[in-house]
Design a protein around this nucleic acid. Structure first.
Lengths: 217, 217
DNA sequence: GTCTATAAAGTGATAGAC
DNA sequence: GTCTATCACTTTATAGAC
């Protein structure tokens, strides 16, 4: 945790290398020698900077959550304002639908285009949760779920809570499939990568779907 | 591959134990001694029956694909008949929508209720594909994608191919989320498990969503 | 802060008796 | 078909010189 210039460089190089290797290999298979080699530092320095393998792993997630929160917090703020703000102007379909679509757009942009390593780490943690999963849930997943459900409840006050939460899950699933089942999906689409053109197509369709799911009876 | 009664029992015990352990730990972390212990047999027998660790792993997938195909093939047959059969009676919305909903219902029943181990194995293979992924894709994912896309193309002949395939992916994503992101979803729903009541709620909502996604403009 | 060297504890695989 | 015993190898972690 020292901040002397040399040590900080080492620390960051190790974090970057660990992100890639843990994502590609998973925690048990990841090799500390390989991480150190990729970072261009000596393996023993992992023990010095992060205590042990698990310490390095958790540090990767802590850094990622901070990064992702910085991107999502603006959208959450807009939603909180729409929910708690003064008297809403106009019908719910316009007051709450736009913040909802903005949130979904943000998720699409980040999840579809983000460095694949992040998605792989998230999937692995959902598969075999460790302490890192709590870091993810408390920092990102939970707040995002709460914002989404609150918006949907305002949009469809007639729906019972369970139906609203399930719809929220299904909306998110359309975005998550790009990280959770990227390989079969890319084969289905016959895409080699998701570039700007593909991103536009995805965003447009998910916007359409979200409106259908929210406004359908 | 012998079929003498004693050896066959050992083989099946090893496959069952390997399914659970590979799913929980992943291929690299799974321990052959642990698998043998759980199966109640001697570790050396893994080499005798499956050659090596990889042979055991692939055998798990081969067995699973055979099992799953047995469940899905009836639905695929109904769809093939609707697609290739004689003159369709009535509008596409009735001729093709019912087979589509039947297929989705089947996926829901299997994926939501199946032994969690299968889903975990599938996710892991999508994350770091090995030869087992091809077994999965050729045996299950590919045929299922083709059936779904063919139906959607008939239902919405006006949509371009890319849009149809993307809609197909989004329909599937709603089912897959129950294996790909089960943990956050269960927390969102505040469900401890997916019993008959929860399954009904899921099936009903996914039917609703599928119709909205297919019939929406 | 960084390095070398090595300890300590696994791992998958197999030879050979039964 | 099954078991015991063991080999060859890799892994994480750390002690101690610089």
């Amino acid at each position: 945790m020292k901040t002397s210039p040399r040590g900080e460089t080492t620390r960051e190089a190790l974090l970057e290398a660990a992100t890639v290797v843990f994502a590609r290999e998973g925690f048990p298979a990841a090799n500390l020698r390989g991480i150190a080699e990729r970072a261009g530092v000596n393996p023993a320095l992992i023990g010095y900077h992060f205590q042990n393998k698990e310490g390095l792993y958790l540090a990767v997630f802590t850094q990622w959550v901070a990064n992702m929160r910085a991107c999502l917090e603006p959208a959450w703020a807009v939603i909180a304002q729409a929910l708690d703000g003064p008297e809403p102007q106009g019908p719910p379909e316009t007051v709450y639908l736009e913040p909802l679509l903005a949130l979904v757009d943000g998720m699409v942009a980040h999840i579809v285009m983000e460095h694949p390593a992040w998605g792989e780490l998230m999937v692995r943690e959902q598969q075999s949760p460790s302490a890192a999963f709590d870091i993810l849930f408390e920092g990102i997943i939970g707040p995002n779920q709460r914002a989404l459900v609150a918006l949907l409840q305002r949009l469809r006050p007639g729906f019972e809570g369970e139906k609203v939460r399930l719809i929220a899950g299904m909306i998110v699933s359309q975005v998550l499939v790009f990280r959770n089942a990227r390989l079969p999906l890319m084969r289905l689409m016959d895409w080699a990568k998701v570039g700007p053109r593909e991103l536009d197509a995805v965003r447009a369709l998910i916007r359409r779907n979200t409106q259908l799911l929210v406004l359908g009876d």
